[in-house]
Design a protein around this nucleic acid. Structure first.
Lengths: 338, 338
DNA sequence: CGAGCGGCTGACAACGTTGTCAGGCGGACA
DNA sequence: TGTCCGCCTGACAACGTTGTCAGCCGCTCG
């Protein structure tokens, strides 16, 4: 900037005025400065600028995801990135892998960079540690799971409603013995989806049979094993509700391995690429990560702009997509002759 | 920091020394300062720090991807993020959507933030505009596609070799009429994969039939339409080589729609989730985005550390995964009575 | 003709940190 | 006892920018 000022034979402040389009610079000077800028390929240092600026804003937000590489997270990332880009805000991101300690480390790191806002898909269960940052003026929005012990906005899918709809869909096809296969039960979404399952069964007056409820399936292998076990049990379920992506994939594998994919119904929570090309195609309750991300970013920017409305939990609807696997009926009751 | 210094009754510089673990502070003072830091929840401002630091480093890199939301990009992102995190470096990222102008905008934005390095999956075809940044000391590594008119390191998949292997695999199964279905032909990877296809055919002395070569299929719908057309043509191919993810998915749909999925062989470039669960399961040439990303990040940091070795093009091998669709043989030649 | 005003311009301080350097203090040594 | 040295410590400038403010110029108006 000094070089530009020297070349254009003006003061530093005039260069600054030209860069920021401030009024009160004569056209001739403006042109001279602009020429010098172009000639020197000068690029203003945004970090220095944000250090000095009265707003104290860095035009930067932090995004804390479960795992950048998974489809849900990366769709969120993209949606949030698009909104941020339109506002000239850059995005830092990091993966937490369900590790509460890493979550806190990332928050500290981002706070050290003085991000203006944080979008968090939390792994921990006590977010009071964020209170200081919130009071220091960092806007915070939670996504996918609400905050605990902290008053901030959150955007979540309709986990409970979507799951209940899935179960009712299976009930409508005539099923009475519907298994639940779920992710780590400490995770909010898994708990909610399980609650939806319970409610769906209750709506039909069916008692939950703990023998066909499996929690804590953390990868598709665990899910595959659990489904295989259920299928081999004396009283196997006639339908499966899988509460998460990888669990659904594991279930598909197990059904396939048992040759039962056309006998046992399946509805999965969260859509999977190519699910519609399987045989049978997999019926799912789809989330809308793009909508969630866009909403989260918009809310964050509202808060950054000073919106002081009471915080709220925003629930984004899910959508049941019937494709075949969820429309398989229960086995016809055999007569006494067996 | 002023508050901390005041509370601990020391000078600013002593606080700075404690924070950065510099030697030459008595244990008592160190403890007193640490107490003050804890008490005030003081978090050093990393942007101010990097502004002043002699190294001039921001501990920040920029990542320019085709689309953060696609699996290849997000796997890259994750791998690079992991290496960066281990070095205390934060990552900015942005999506380019094959738009050369957006690529330049992102570079400018990141340069304005004074990133120490750039990882670029380029959309443009003339990267000389990066020369200034390179000379200004920004480390640059290209990924997935090499740089044009700019001398920097690049890491790419073995597009040509992998494609040739795919075609040879189909040839080995007896096919002589193998269609090529490719992405936008201006994209480097598409050109390379097409070259591999040509070479594969040439190795068997088969002439390319332009009637069964289709370029510029930018989404799965276009691919689906193209395959449908090929299948309905007077001399349909007995095997398909699809050079990209979405094209592969479109081909699966078209084959399915025509009921030809068990008659026409298919090998796709780039793996797809659930490809192994389709019927038939899809044979693919898999890339290794994790390895590519890790290598890219390591190379970038080497350069940032001052490595001056000549730049190179690093080729990461692909892997053919036979799953069924690529092992379908050609229709048996009918006798004259046909 | 002088005061006052508005439009331009640049000198200077400040943002929060770190590099440089000088000063104070105590102990070892002549 | 005086000198020198090494260990701690803090004052100050500087990083690249922007907010504040004062000063200059030419014009208008009384």
């Amino acid at each position: 900037m000094r070089d530009v000022a020297a070349l254009a034979r003006v003061g530093l402040k005039t260069v600054s005025r030209v860069i920021n389009g401030e009024p009160g610079v004569s056209p001739e000077l403006r042109a001279r400065v602009q020429r010098a800028i172009d000639q020197l390929d000068y690029l203003p240092n945004l970090t220095a600028s944000s250090l000095r600026r009265s707003s104290g804003r860095s035009a930067t937000i932090g995004l804390i995801l479960e795992n950048i590489a998974n489809p849900f997270s990366s769709s969120l990332h993209r949606a949030i990135g698009d909104v941020a880009w339109a506002r000239g805000v850059q995005v830092f991101s990091g993966s937490v892998d369900e590790d509460a300690i890493r979550e806190r480390l990332l928050v500290s790191t981002f706070a050290g960079r003085r991000v203006d806002g944080l979008v968090v898909v939390p792994a921990s269960h006590d977010h009071s540690y964020l209170l200081g940052h919130k009071q220091a003026g960092t806007a915070i929005v939670f996504v996918d799971r609400p905050a605990e012990f902290l008053d901030v906005d959150a955007i979540v899918s309709d986990n409970r409603g979507g799951s209940e709809e899935a179960v009712r869909h299976l009930l409508a096809a005539g099923h009475r013995r519907i298994a639940y296969l779920g992710d780590l039960a400490t995770v909010y979404t898994a708990r909610e989806r399980h609650a939806g399952y319970d409610r769906g069964l209750a709506s039909a007056g069916i008692a939950v049979d703990p023998a066909i409820v499996r929690h804590d399936l953390q990868d598709s292998e665990a899910a595959e094993a659990a489904v295989a076990e259920l299928l081999a049990s004396p009283a196997p379920p006639s339908a499966l509700f899988t509460s998460q992506n990888l669990v659904t994939i594991g279930a598909v594998r197990a059904l396939r391995a048992a040759g039962a994919q056309h006998q046992v119904a399946l509805v999965g929570f969260d859509d999977v690429l190519l699910a519609d090309m399987l045989e049978p195609a997999v019926t799912v309750v789809a989330q809308d990560p793009r909508a969630i991300g866009t909403l989260a970013a918009q809310l964050l920017f509202l808060r950054m702009d000073g919106d002081l409305a009471p915080t709220a939990l925003h629930v984004v609807p899910t959508r049941l997509i019937p494709r075949g696997s969820g429309e398989i009926g229960p086995p016809v009751a055999r007569s006494g002759r067996g």
